[in-house]
Design a protein around this nucleic acid. Structure first.
Lengths: 138, 138
DNA sequence: TTCTTATTGCAAATTTGTTGCAATAATATG
DNA sequence: CATATTATTGCAACAAATTTGCAATAAGAA
């Protein structure tokens, strides 16, 4: 994992420092997107400021992306560090389900083509009730 | 417009106050999603705190939704106050293009069905370069 | 018109994000 | 391997955004 990171950084002329490794490792070890506050707590040896700066850099380099998540934003690794996917979010129990939809990707391409738009990235999310919560509530 | 609002509020037992009308009117008068700071400035007679509380309530009642917008979030009225749609966002000039895609809605339904998920809402956004900026930069 | 109580505005606290700069450490170079 | 260069860090201090408690106000019911 760090090899690919090194490659990206070397290519761009940035240094692969221990704060950056720490933030990357936390994200890489997580199943789901993380809020900044969580990343800060998970890296007790790294200053808050460096975490803000690191996430800004990662996002600018396309290593992470910002995921809308209720009121706050969260961060998640992108491809090739984590395969491209989207989320179903259960508003009752909070579970996140990863989805990989070829059809969705096709629709993105089709919409962009129709609008003469050059797509760089896209976000997608469905909120609602997971199978389990449908059965239990109401 | 206010009639429908009154209906929603009456049904839920909330009061339709002047701060709430003011925030609603600002959102209703806008073409695009608005940042909280903008809404605060647009309602000089309403306290900041009330605007936070109002947007929290609106979102909880499904009157508004949070739109990811670069680093910050913005707020926009939802159906029936504003027809359901999504955005293309040009990262160069900042323009927002509204899209209404039947295909996308079908994919949402299909994904939900496959996952046995009961969808309540969904977000979708493509970022990239608009026609104009493709021609001008690079 | 009066009563009840949800909602507001205010003040103050807290949390979140930003900036400038000297000290540190990652990489290139000899 | 030692040294030089300079990107990056941590710290302190600041600035902005968001939250909380509570008395005063006003919406809607009676």
């Amino acid at each position: 994992m760090h090899n690919e990171l090194e490659t990206v950084f070397a290519k761009e002329g940035y240094r692969l420092t221990s704060p950056r490794r720490a933030v990357f490792d936390v994200l890489h070890g997580s199943e789901s997107p993380l809020a900044i506050a969580v990343i800060i707590k998970a890296c007790p040896d790294v200053d808050r400021v460096s975490i803000y700066r690191t996430l800004e850099l990662f996002t600018r380099l396309g290593i992470t992306e910002i995921i809308p998540f209720g009121w706050k934003q969260r961060y998640e690794l992108t491809s090739p560090f984590k395969p491209h996917h989207h989320h179903l979010y259960c508003t009752n129990c909070g579970v996140l389900i990863d989805i990989h939809s070829q059809k969705l990707e096709q629709v993105v391409a089709a919409i962009a083509r129709e609008q003469d738009f050059q797509p760089a990235a896209h976000k997608f999310e469905i909120t609602g009730l997971c199978r389990h919560c449908q059965a239990n509530i109401q």
